[in-house]
Computed example of a mutant assay.
Amino acid sequence: MKEILEVMKPGLSTSIQDTGRIGYQKYGIPTAGAMDTFAHRIANLLVGNPEEAATLEIMLMGPRLKFLQDAVIAVGGADLSAAVDGEPVCPWKSFRVYTGQILSFGKPVHGTYAYLAVSGGFYAETVMGSKSTYAQANLGGIEGRILQKGDRLSAEDKNLKSIRAGRYLKKTDIPNYEQHRPIRVITGPDISAFSDTIYQQFLQESYRITEQSNRMGYRLEGKALSHVDKADIISDAVLPGTIQVPANGQPIVLLADRQTTGGYARIATVIAADIPQLVQKKIGAEVRFLSVPLERAHADYLAQQRYFKILRTAVRSEE
Rank of each mutant, 00 (worst) to 15 (best):
residue 1 M to N: 12
residue 2 K to S: 07
residue 2 K to C: 05
residue 4 I to A: 03
residue 8 M to H: 03
residue 8 M to T: 06
residue 8 M to S: 02
residue 8 M to C: 02
residue 18 D to P: 05
residue 23 G to S: 09
residue 24 Y to R: 04
residue 29 I to E: 10
residue 34 A to Y: 14
residue 41 R to G: 06
residue 44 N to M: 05
residue 51 E to D: 09
residue 54 A to P: 00
residue 54 A to M: 03
residue 55 T to K: 05
residue 57 E to G: 09
residue 58 I to K: 06
residue 60 L to P: 00
residue 61 M to A: 11
residue 64 R to V: 12
residue 69 Q to E: 11
residue 70 D to H: 08
residue 72 V to R: 06
residue 75 V to W: 00
residue 77 G to V: 11
residue 77 G to Q: 15
residue 78 A to V: 12
residue 78 A to K: 13
residue 81 S to V: 01
residue 82 A to S: 14
residue 84 V to S: 09
residue 85 D to E: 08
residue 87 E to I: 14
residue 91 P to N: 09
residue 92 W to H: 12
residue 95 F to Q: 02
residue 97 V to G: 05
residue 103 L to P: 01
residue 104 S to T: 08
residue 107 K to V: 09
residue 108 P to L: 11
residue 109 V to F: 14
residue 109 V to P: 00
residue 113 Y to M: 03
residue 115 Y to K: 06
residue 119 S to G: 15
residue 124 A to I: 04
residue 132 S to N: 02
residue 134 Y to N: 03
residue 135 A to Y: 15
residue 138 N to L: 07
residue 139 L to Y: 12
residue 147 L to P: 00
residue 148 Q to T: 00
residue 154 S to N: 07
residue 156 E to L: 03
residue 157 D to P: 00
residue 161 K to T: 14
residue 162 S to T: 12
residue 164 R to Y: 11
residue 165 A to K: 11
residue 168 Y to F: 12
residue 168 Y to R: 09
residue 169 L to P: 00
residue 171 K to Q: 14
residue 172 T to Y: 15
residue 177 Y to V: 04
residue 180 H to I: 03
residue 190 D to S: 01
residue 190 D to C: 01
residue 192 S to G: 02
residue 193 A to E: 04
residue 200 Q to Y: 10
residue 207 Y to W: 14
residue 209 I to S: 07
residue 209 I to Q: 11
residue 210 T to E: 10
residue 210 T to K: 10
residue 211 E to S: 11
residue 211 E to R: 14
residue 212 Q to H: 13
residue 215 R to L: 09
residue 220 L to Q: 10
residue 223 K to S: 06
residue 226 S to N: 06
residue 227 H to D: 02
residue 234 I to L: 15
residue 234 I to A: 10
residue 238 V to G: 04
residue 243 I to K: 01
residue 244 Q to E: 08
residue 245 V to M: 04
residue 248 N to M: 09
residue 249 G to M: 09
residue 254 L to A: 03
residue 264 Y to S: 02
residue 264 Y to K: 02
residue 266 R to K: 15
residue 268 A to M: 07
residue 271 I to Q: 08
residue 271 I to P: 12
residue 272 A to H: 13
residue 272 A to K: 15
residue 275 I to C: 10
residue 276 P to L: 04
residue 279 V to A: 09
residue 285 A to P: 00
residue 288 R to S: 15
residue 289 F to T: 07
residue 291 S to Q: 14
residue 297 A to T: 11
residue 297 A to E: 13
residue 298 H to N: 10
residue 304 Q to H: 06
residue 304 Q to L: 01
residue 310 I to S: 08
residue 312 R to V: 04
residue 313 T to K: 13
residue 317 S to W: 08
residue 317 S to C: 02
